[in-house]
Amino acid sequence: MSAITREDVARLGALARIHLTDGELDVLAGQLTAIVDAVAVVSSAVDDSTPATSHPIPLTNVFRPDTVTASLSRAEALSSAPADQDGQFRVPQILGEEP
């Protein structure tokens, strides 16, 4: 049982750049708590002797050679762009968000 608070949801919303109303915060906090609780059931099936894994298949070292393969044409690359200019993707202004 791990309750997701309204503050948690507000923070996630801010990180995901989603504006949430007060009403939505309440609804989502409840829904997310239910989801997290449902997933937490998995924890009851394992004990400390079970190592955490990030990959379900026991494969490692899958690489590709450093050989150039075909890229998309620029027209193809830009075909799904909402806007483009001078062969580049055109995006809205970003306010102080440089990573």
Binding site: T69, S71, S73, A77, Q88
Partner: peptide
């Protein structure tokens, strides 16, 4: 990915 890394290529021509 296998896209080339050549410096100075025209924009968005080394993408996949």
């Amino acid at each position: 990915c296998g896209c080339a890394t050549a410096f100075g290529a025209p924009p968005n021509t080394q993408v996949c």
